[in-house]
Simulated scan of single mutants.
Amino acid sequence: MHRVLIIGATSAIAEATARLFAEDGDRLFLVARRKARLKAAADDLAVRGAEIAGCEVLDVNELDRHRAVLEQAEQALGGIDLALVAHGTLPDQQLCQASARLTVQEIQTNAVSTVALLTRLSELMERKGSGRIAVVTSVAADRGRQSNYVYGAAKAAVDTFLEGLRQRLYKAGVGVTTIRPGFVDTPMTAGFDKGLLWSQPDTVARRIHHAILKGADVVYVPSFWRWIMLAIRLMPRRVFKALKL
């Protein structure tokens, strides 16, 4: 039995992953900003087999509330073994290009709030001397592209933070898993045309669940994205900058 904290718990990927932990009979504590949906998700997990399914409302940009909510989760679960951080927004790149305020707001939500949460979580885990922190970033972090570089820059900042955190916490017996999904068919991507590279949340959740329990460091979801992004990263800059990506 694991004691699992999920932040951003009402996202499609997080909900699907939470169901797998519930079916394992784990204890869960959900954190998200939409109260009604959060309560419904917790109730559903209790029906699916979760030993405990608690929840608390939090807007992740309320940085001064992070510590209190994490302490509440720790108390409700009797400790935290696994923490999945899965919140985020998908900004409109064109709108961001026209607004410095909006760009900073998106960086705040997708990077700064995550880094703040990870700083608090790492304190708890390091003190305990065990556990695993998993964070959903994106393949967009691997290389900035004109179509979504605000989002990609935020996720890249988190990726770099996680790399350093992984090295630091290794000595304390705490693992860090970076999860890099590709295109996922969720409400957040409802306006996109879907093709062969798109995955469903349940498929992504199964790989995330497996990666966390296995103790993977970095996982691409689905796995073929590792090779796609390798090709993109290795592409010469003079070629890459001329592409319409």
Rank of each mutant, 00 (worst) to 15 (best):
R65F: 03
A46L: 15
E71T: 05
I80S: 11
C55P: 03
R67S: 10
R65A: 11
L90I: 10
D81I: 07
C55Y: 15
L82D: 03
L77W: 04
A46M: 11
A76Q: 13
E56P: 03
V47N: 13
C55M: 12
A41Q: 14
R65K: 09
G49P: 01
R67D: 05
A42L: 06
D43T: 05
L58Q: 00
G78A: 00
L82T: 07
V69I: 14
A86L: 11
C55D: 12
D44E: 15
E71V: 06
A73C: 02
L84H: 10
Q72F: 10
K39Q: 15
A41S: 15
I80C: 07
K35Y: 10
L45W: 06
D64Y: 00
L70S: 08
R34H: 13
V69K: 01
A83V: 13
P91Y: 11
V60F: 04
L70V: 04
P91H: 08
A86F: 13
T89K: 10
L63H: 12
L90G: 08
K35E: 15
E56A: 15
E71S: 12
G49L: 03
L58T: 05
V85I: 15
A42H: 08
K39T: 11
L63Y: 12
Q75E: 14
E51F: 06
V57A: 08
L58M: 07
L82W: 07
G78L: 00
L90E: 06
K39L: 11
T89Y: 12
E56S: 14
P91R: 10
E62W: 09
A41P: 08
N61W: 05
I80R: 04
R34K: 07
T89R: 11
L77G: 01
D81C: 09
V47Q: 13
L77H: 07
D81N: 07
A40H: 06
A83Q: 05
